[in-house]
Amino acid sequence: MPRRFITSCPRTCVGAATVLCALLASTSASATAVAGAASVTIVAPVIAREEAPLAFGSIDSSSSGVVLTVNPDGTTRCSRAASCTGRASPAIFALTGTAGERVGVTVTDHATLSSAAGDSLQVALTLGSPQLDLIAGKARVAIGGEIIVPAGQAPGGYHGAFHVDVDYQ
């Protein structure tokens, strides 16, 4: 059998002599050279801006408790039609970020609405879509909610805030 010489392979070209080393490495006419691609996508921070608040309109619970559901698609359902008036509509957030990227949205389960007098009401929040594609760098997400107003709830304006998280995936 022909002899086998254990020889080590030359080191990869590094450092200041890179160009010369690369030239020497590539002069072997019978070496096979293949290209690979390296890639990365740099994204801009995604921003969520409220365009419309979550509104439940006016609810009369003087005679009985009322449940008002506002769906992300804008439809509403009032347990007692006569008790719900005014405009009820979902919250709308405008998202901006890197075009073509997909983002995930999360929202807290509940929000607490409070009145100036210190009374409170709970709202269960519903997210319209947990994932959205930023078409041309934009998207909209709706957040609905269900409010349960017990009978005899103290009248007044109730306000609250909730937190929406948006992130690339």
């Binding site: 022909p2 002899r3 086998r4 010489f5 020889t7 006419a29 019978s30 070496a31």
Partner: peptide, 10 residues
Amino acid sequence: AGLGCYDTAS
């Protein structure tokens, strides 16, 4: 010319 030669000849 045109050939690739490897290992040590003797």
